[in-house]
Design a protein around this nucleic acid. Structure first.
Lengths: 114, 114
DNA sequence: AGATTATATAACTACATGGTTAAATGCAAT
DNA sequence: ATTGCATTTAACCATGTAGTTATATAATCT
């Protein structure tokens, strides 16, 4: 899929973000990923499925385990969206700021003529 | 609130992202924000509430309208989280890449000794 | 083949989300 | 004070999400 809806949706959960942070340190099996959390293994399994659907990780069968790896292209897409909007906003803010300063200037000169 | 759960959750919807993109161009009333979309006004109103809860916008009463403005600190928080993880991943990837290259080198020298 | 381990799927519950239409609020204009 | 406009809230429906326990699958070990 790799839609922004899926990507951001996948990121909107503390456990899933923690899993990604863990995977940023290197690949891990499902059991290893589940260990730190106080939820059942099936719950983790479904979190991983969400991350996989969002194209944020890949799962690869290795022996009787499944090893998960980060797949950060989707992260980049999400990051790009945010950064682009932040940049637009900052430009806008700069203009607004300049405008307000201009107003301020006018007002303080007007203030004397009240 | 301003939790990452809320922030990413708010971003996980096409309409809400479009609203934010629109607001990056400047403030707008609810009606103006609703216009481009093929959904009812109450639906938009609730999207705005989600964005407000996520601390991504502020709504200010002005005459009989409500004007919305972007409030990008939360966007920055989300962006920072992604960027930090991307950076970790990229370092990791570089090390892995080097390691694989090293393996590759060994293997090709070994290849002759088979 | 049978037991063990690692993980996934099924069936279920509870709650959140996104949409609708209809009614309520708040402010403005007459 | 009444009408009208902009927006929100209420009530409802359908679907999605997060968790559980119990069961199934798949690979490994004996």
């Amino acid at each position: 899929m790799h839609s922004l809806d899926h990507t951001f949706g996948a990121l909107a959960d503390t456990i899933r973000r923690a899993i990604l942070a863990r995977l940023a340190l290197g690949e891990a099996t499902v059991g290893e990923l589940a260990k730190p959390f106080d939820v059942s293994l099936p719950a983790i399994s479904r979190h991983l499925k969400v991350l996989e659907t969002a194209d944020l990780i890949v799962r690869e069968k290795r022996a009787q385990q499944r090893v998960c790896r980060l797949k950060p292209e989707a992260l980049k897409t999400a990051s790009d969206w945010i950064e682009q909007n932040r940049r637009m906003w900052e430009e806008r803010f700069d203009r607004l700021d300049a405008y307000l300063r201009e107003l301020q200037g006018k007002e303080s000169t007007d203030a004397g003529n009240k």
